[in-house]
């Protein structure tokens, strides 16, 4: 018998082992749901898939009586707009901050300690301040996401910048390169794939801040909806919404990963 650390699943088993937990959870849910609905057909805690389907059909395909919108799609659109603008702003500021602090010691000296401290402030604790300063509209939610993940991206890019071998910078200088030329041609292009990786890692936090902000003050959005229907214990809406958010997060993550491999083949190969 080999040691446990040397035992690997054979390839057909690999897929099966990956699917198994999902199947198991599904079966458990179905059994639980059936048992509860058997005992009480009005049970709301574990709705059947048919009930969830009905609820989603109502939200996704029938215009709302009050606003005439398709609520599910309107929620998705406004949440993604908020998340997208927040993450885009954070990525841009983080990239510039990280590049400059990583490459220029004179910029790093005053900014790096500040950045470290700011990154330790819990962003959600700032939410009341953001509501006071920016009001309850879109701006405060976008700013929360941006504030929440900018320090992470900036520090990650700063670290990546400093990890680029010193030899390359010396080489560029011996070829006559000026500081802006080195920033733009040697460092920046090599940071782009790392920026995409940093964005992938920070999307989880981005969703967290988005849903928190929407739960507290919003009139639409995925987070707003699940917190709204919680009052009626509408698990038939909450569960599909959570699944939808998870699917969106998965799609973004894998799209960014694929984009990275496509655009920057030298990065995936551990370019030297």
């Amino acid at each position: 018998m080999k040691r446990l650390i040397n035992l690997k699943p054979a390839s057909p088993w690999h897929l099966l082992l990956a699917v198994l937990p999902f199947a198991l959870l599904l079966v458990l849910y179905l059994l639980g749901s059936d048992a509860r609905l058997e005992a009480n057909p009005a049970d709301k805690l574990l709705p059947s898939f048919a009930q969830m389907g009905d609820a989603m059909e109502r939200l996704a395909l029938e215009p709302s009586k009050r606003s005439g919108e398709l609520l599910f799609w309107a929620d998705t659109a406004s949440s993604l707009t908020r998340l997208g603008s927040g993450v885009a702003i954070a990525a841009m500021i983080g990239l510039v901050l990280g590049l400059l602090t990583g490459a220029l010691p004179l910029v790093k000296a005053p900014l790096a300690p500040l950045l470290t401290v700011v990154s330790l402030v819990p962003p959600l604790a700032l939410l009341p301040i953001l509501f006071i300063v920016f009001g309850l509209g879109e701006l405060s939610k976008v700013v929360l996401i941006a504030i929440g993940i900018t320090p992470f991206i900036a520090r990650d890019i700063q670290r990546s910048t400093m990890e680029i071998p010193q030899e390359q910078l010396v080489k560029a200088q011996t070829l006559g390169a000026s500081t802006p030329q080195i920033l733009l041609r040697v460092l920046l292009p090599q940071l782009m794939p790392r920026l995409i990786d940093a964005v992938r890692l920070s999307l989880g936090a981005g969703w967290l801040f988005l849903i928190a902000a929407e739960a507290i003050a919003a009139t639409d959005g995925l987070g707003y909806r699940i917190f709204l229907v919680r009052r009626y214990m509408a698990m038939d809406v909450i569960l599909p919404y959570v699944a939808w958010i998870t699917l969106l997060a998965f799609v973004f993550d894998s799209t960014l990963a694929r984009l990275n491999r496509r655009l920057f083949p030298w990065h995936a190969q551990g370019g030297r």
């Binding site: 390359q168 080489k171 560029a172 070829l175 006559g176 390169a177 000026s178 802006p180 030329q181 080195i182 733009l184 041609r185 040697v186 292009p189 090599q190 920057f264 030298w266 990065h267 370019g271 030297r272």
Partner: peptide, 24 residues
């Protein structure tokens, strides 16, 4: 060498760095 540039671009960049200019 610069890992993010093709062989030809590596050498062209060396010429570009030799020129004044902000972008390289």
């Amino acid at each position: 060498v610069f890992p993010h540039m093709s062989v030809l671009d590596n050498v062209i960049a060396a010429r570009a760095f030799h020129n004044p200019g902000v972008t390289g």
